[in-house]
Design a protein around this nucleic acid. Structure first.
Length: 649
DNA sequence: ATTAGGG
DNA sequence: CCCTAAT
């Protein structure tokens, strides 16, 4: 068994164990620290656990019984036995983390005290994940958990025992000002299908288990803070995951952060980071995944180790943009893991998993609304609203959007974030005050206002209720399997109906200059694309005026100083990056070289195109010279280049 | 962070 | 526009 696991560890070719041991002291401390939060469940871990189980099942005919697992869990949970370190189990913990240990048969120790909580669990060999699941969890609760787990879902419980995440897979974006458990509950019942709350003894055991193990790996507190206002710091005792050292040996290793990570206000680059992560990296994964697929698709089953690594990796990526290059190097692996994970899920599904019924849920918390922090960045511009995922910790992952960002943006952003972590196949819906918000074009700001003030606006009809004074956004992350319909609310028959019913719908979507500008910077597209993953910026054709400005600037500065061109001619246009300008110049040059009838889009005056050609040739001739001259060469006049160039040519 | 190019 | 590589 162990050897096998080891192999898994080396999957990446890393020689060192992927999961380093965390100092016991630390483990203990964390454990203690989180004692109160022991009821929280780490879906990831569960997922990992399930995956692991699955792996175990398929890889070897060795059947493990649930009891073992249960005992393990229980063991972990038992207060009277804080000396986990001593127990074999602790060993497992050392090997890796949470879930893993759970499934290490040899490590699992018969807990005399298996106790009541798991007493009811049937002791059965699992043939399928499904079975495993049912077994794993006694009542529906655990079943639920498993389902979710398999889907890469996260279910979390409050300290209060309230479930924040649901099977229904909702993302609750609560306004930190007042988020009430009751409300959530309501929504659950209302919106969640086949959902069960994770809590009680089950949650206790499982969660605690996860927690303990997590100590040396992931971050535990995957639950929301009972007190919305509580500063993030409190729950920000993030454990650094998958931290890599300079040698890059540590892929997937988890380190325990001994200190709390202070909440650092994220500049407005926050969303950019997310975007980067979610777009670039995420997208890139796809191709690589395939390449790696063959690699370990042998069983079609993946170890939860891999899955775990994947998660960690993601977190790491999200957490530290450092050494981008190197991180990328690992993407293959990560991708693979992800793929694996997905496959597992698929398999599970095929086996009759309740995939269609289970959904993931992630709670978001509004970290700040038009907070000074954010405001500072964009002086005079739209205040931003920042969200963080509360359900589980994703270090430094914030979702920040201008208040003028649309609900659709929020959905998309959340979905992407979730996708990046859990894998593809999630859909996000937004529920405000328990009602679905279908109008993706509505801005967060608008929604918020509506909630706070107008109790009876058309918005209500549109799916936003004003039942409560506290605005809270709830996003639902649905599984693809669930597809449409899931979000349909009892009140609103259909989306069409909704949109049609809301007269203001359009009025609320005006794309004001401000709005569009902000959105342009934000990683969100108002126009839903074929793939929800699409993050392309909205296309913004250059106007003739812009082209002229560009041409003028290039004539003056040359073709290799896009930064300067940007600053000089488009300094105020945030949506035009120097890369954009460079690209535009490229296309202009190309356009100038083709016959007019082949050109598309808004026609560019021929004279401008001529200037493009002139400036281009001029600068191509002078760039070399300049380099030799070093600096100083810039006395050319707009007209000069043309003459010289043209003449020369 | 920029620049240069390919996609 | 996006993505990378190379600065």
């Amino acid at each position: 068994m162990v050897p096998k696991k080891r192999l898994d560890y080396r999957f990446n070719g890393r020689r060192s164990p992927i999961i380093p041991k965390a100092p016991r002291s630390i483990r203990r401390r964390c454990s203690h620290k989180n004692s109160v939060e022991d009821n929280k469940l780490c879906a990831f871990e569960l997922l990992a656990a399930v995956a692991g189980k699955l792996l175990q099942e398929s890889e070897s005919s060795v059947s493990s019984n649930v009891e073992t697992h249960a005992s393990t869990l229980k063991n972990e949970n038992v207060k009277g036995q804080p000396k986990d370190e001593q127990t074999p189990k602790s060993e497992s913990i050392d090997h890796g983390s949470c879930a893993e240990s759970s499934f290490m048969p040899e490590t699992s120790v018969q807990e005399p005290d298996l106790s009541s909580k798991f007493k009811g669990l049937p002791q059965v060999d699992i043939d399928s994940v499904l079975e495993n699941i049912s077994v794993f969890a006694s009542p529906d609760v655990l079943k639920k958990l498993d389902c979710d787990s398999v889907q890469g879902t996260c279910q979390v419980s409050d300290a209060d025992g309230n479930t924040n995440c649901e099977v229904g897979g909702s993302v609750f974006v609560g306004n930190n000002i007042n988020l009430r458990a009751e409300d959530q509950q309501d929504m659950h019942s209302e919106d969640v299908i086949n959902t069960s709350n994770v809590k009680d003894h089950v949650g206790e055991c499982v969660n605690s288990n996860m927690l303990i193990k997590s100590d040396n790996s992931v971050q535990l507190p995957l639950y929301r803070d009972p007190i919305p206002h509580t500063p993030l710091q409190q729950q920000w005792n993030t454990v650094k995951l998958g931290i890599r050292d300079d040698d890059d040996n540590y892929f997937g290793c988890n380190k325990l952060s001994t200190k709390f990570r202070p909440f650092r206000p994220q500049p407005r680059t926050g969303h950019r980071r997310i975007r980067k992560m979610l777009t670039s990296k995420y997208r890139k994964m796809a191709p690589k995944q395939r390449s790696c697929e063959l690699y370990n698709s042998r069983d079609g089953v993946k170890s939860f180790y891999q899955y775990r690594k994947r998660i960690y990796t993601h977190e790491r990526c999200l957490q530290a943009p450092i050494k981008k290059r190197k991180l990328f190097d690992h993407m293959g692996t990560v991708s693979h893991d992800q793929e694996a994970s997905n496959n597992s899920i698929s398999n599970a599904s095929e086996k009759g998993m309740c995939m269609d019924k289970c959904n993931s849920g992630i709670i978001l918390e509004r970290v700040s609304g038009a907070s000074p922090t954010v405001k500072g960045h964009k002086k005079g511009k739209d205040p931003h609203v920042k969200f963080s995922i509360k359900s589980f910790k994703v270090p430094e992952l914030y979702i920040e959007l201008p208040e003028t960002a649309s609900v659709g943006s929020l959905k998309r952003t959340v979905m992407e974030a979730v996708t990046a972590i859990l894998g593809s196949g999630v859909r996000v819906g937004v529920v405000l005050q328990g009602k679905k918000v279908r109008d993706d074009n509505r801005t967060l700001q608008q929604a918020d206002r509506e909630l706070l003030r107008s109790p009876a606006t058309p918005m209500v009809d549109s799916g936003i209720s004003n039942a409560s004074v506290d605005p809270h956004f709830v996003s639902k992350v649905d599984d693809d399997v669930v597809t449409s319909g899931f979000l349909s609310s009892p009140q609103t028959p259909s989306v069409e109906a909704v949109n049609g019913t809301v007269p203001d719908s359009k009025a609320l979507v005006p794309v004001s200059p401000t709005n569009s500008e902000s959105l342009a910077v934000v990683p969100a597209n108002l126009k839903p694309k074929k793939s929800e993953l699409s993050q392309r910026r909205t296309r913004r054709p250059f106007s003739v005026g812009e082209v002229e400005a560009l041409v003028e600037a290039v004539e003056r500065l040359g073709t290799g100083r896009w930064r300067d061109v940007k600053m000089g001619a488009f300094g105020h246009a945030d949506h035009r990056t120097y890369v954009d300008l460079k690209d535009k110049w490229k296309t202009l040059y190309h356009t100038a070289g083709i016959s007019p009838h082949q050109r598309r889009g808004e026609p560019v005056p021929q004279d401008l195109l001529d200037r493009v050609l002139a400036a281009h040739s001029y600068w191509s001739l002078h760039q070399l010279k300049q380099q030799g001259k070093q600096l100083g060469a810039e006395p050319h006049r707009t007209v000069d280049p043309m003459k010289e160039t043209v003449g020369g040519a």
